[in-house]
Design a protein around this nucleic acid. Structure first.
Lengths: 130, 130
DNA sequence: AATAGTGGTAACTAAAAAGTAACTAATGGC
DNA sequence: GCCATTAGTTACTTTTTAGTTACCACTATT
């Protein structure tokens, strides 16, 4: 007999959600994509501390879980754009609540270490303008 | 200069939230405790697949992050009860949204594998009755 | 005198995740 | 002919996380 988690009616689906997005990078990726599609290389620039290998991996997993759409253009050099699916868009309000919670619960942090260098900043602004 | 994450105003606090609760066990622990305080051994029974060491560890981290209150009673055999802090209670609505999202986004799953053996079930019911 | 019950800890091993550096294919431009 | 560009992949190492087993302290019960 399968012994998994207690069947508190919501625990199990919560576990599932955490399996899908509960790690270091995925919420960031989803949040960045919430303002439109972004290319692979640009994601790599926007998240300067992630390695290509891990980024590739996270994107693949998100795609497999139905949260990302991967569009590959037959160009040289190659172009691949990632965007959110409807499923992922439905997740954004919950992610927003989680970040609001952190702001409220840890006001002393102010998350001031989250500055970025100008290179990434202007790259990101270009994304938004597009 | 610190290179961290893009300063999309919410990305950073979201990262912080995920650092605190974004793993396999913590959301389960928080959800179980949402109906009242529970003893260490009972948590271990309610989450049959966690090891004592990992449970201890998760509880400590949650306590350090201000989400759990640990009450140790001077009895023999020892009794230690864990309960949610206000901070943690403020997180519950967001967790609820995450689990609702999974139910909607993956209706085909129905999370039917989440049955538990009778032993844990009755233990959990006793908790709820208390 | 031995055992059960509770909430752990310590030492060790195994597995998973992440990081690093070099490499690739195809084409356009110099 | 050579370099740059993009979106990866491969092989390898390091770090992090999780799991296992044995053990402890203290008392009541058998």
């Amino acid at each position: 007999m399968a012994r998994k988690y207690i069947d508190n009616p919501n625990t199990c689906s919560l576990v599932h959600t955490m399996n899908i997005i509960g790690n270091k990078w995925k919420p960031i990726i989803l949040y960045l994509l919430s303002s439109g599609s972004i290319r692979f290389g640009m994601l790599n620039t926007l998240i300067p501390t992630i390695s290509k290998k891990v980024l590739t991996n996270q994107l693949k997993e998100l795609e497999n879980d139905g949260l990302l759409l991967r569009q590959s253009f037959a160009e040289i050099p190659p172009r691949v754009e990632y965007s959110l699916t409807e499923k992922a868009v439905g997740l954004l309000p919950a992610l927003r609540m989680l970040s609001d919670w952190a702001n409220e619960a840890y006001p002393e942090m102010k998350f001031e270490e989250c500055r970025i260098v100008e290179k990434e900043k202007s790259a990101y602004n270009n994304i938004l303008k597009k």
